[in-house]
Simulated scan of single mutants.
Amino acid sequence: MLDLGGLDIEEVATALADQTDYEHRWLIDPRTGQVAYWTRDTGIDGENPVEIDELDLLVIDPLPSYVWYQDMADFADGITDEATGRCLAQSLQGRGAFRRFKNQLYEHHPELISAWHALRDVRAQRRAVEWLLDHGLVDDTAAQQFATDHSDPALP
């Protein structure tokens, strides 16, 4: 088992959220908790191509986009200003929801950006710890304590 306090939870969270492509992958060393970034052309050291199967590392597959979408929907639903919440919720309809939500937030409601980042980040970190637990890298007690200590922030 890895010590949760010694892991870069934010880096694991970034890997779980990375929806860009499969030309690169995020990996974790199950012995040390060290996270590595792999590309087909440069391997993990940035210079020497290596097949991902040749590495003794665990692939961190990204979570589906609907997981991250739900954070935006929950944020829009949790805002106390009903008109603002409706605007944010409307931005989530149809294709391009992630871009429209971000544009709506940054262009029309910049006062909510820090609250959005706080919610998004704490949920991403909890998901990272859940992922580590699901893969047997951290123990249940530490994961439960992390979840308790990192609850959703209050929304404005």
Rank of each mutant, 00 (worst) to 15 (best):
E54K: 14
L57T: 08
L57N: 08
P62G: 13
P62M: 12
P62V: 05
L63S: 12
L63F: 09
Y66R: 00
Q70D: 14
Q70P: 10
Q70A: 13
M72E: 01
M72G: 06
D74T: 07
F75P: 03
D77M: 07
G78C: 01
G78W: 03
G78T: 04
G78V: 05
I79K: 07
T80Q: 07
T80L: 07
D81K: 09
E82I: 12
A83G: 00
A83P: 06
T84F: 01
R86Y: 00
R86I: 10
C87N: 14
C87G: 00
Q90W: 01
S91L: 03
L92P: 01
Q93N: 14
Q93S: 14
R95W: 10
G96F: 03
R100T: 12
F101L: 08
F101Q: 07
Q104H: 08
L105Y: 10
Y106M: 07
E107W: 03
H108C: 11
H108T: 02
H109W: 13
P110N: 14
P110R: 15
P110S: 13
P110H: 14
I113N: 09
S114Y: 03
S114R: 06
A115P: 02
A118P: 10
A118H: 05
L119I: 04
L119F: 08
D121E: 15
D121K: 12
D121M: 10
V122G: 10
V122L: 12
V122D: 05
R123T: 11
A124E: 00
R127V: 03
A128E: 02
V129A: 04
E130L: 05
E130T: 11
W131L: 03
W131H: 12
L133C: 02
L133R: 14
L133H: 13
D134I: 06
H135D: 09
H135Y: 12
H135M: 01
G136D: 11
L137C: 09
V138S: 02
V138H: 06
D139T: 02
D140L: 12
A142D: 15
A143E: 07
Q145A: 08
F146Q: 11
F146W: 15
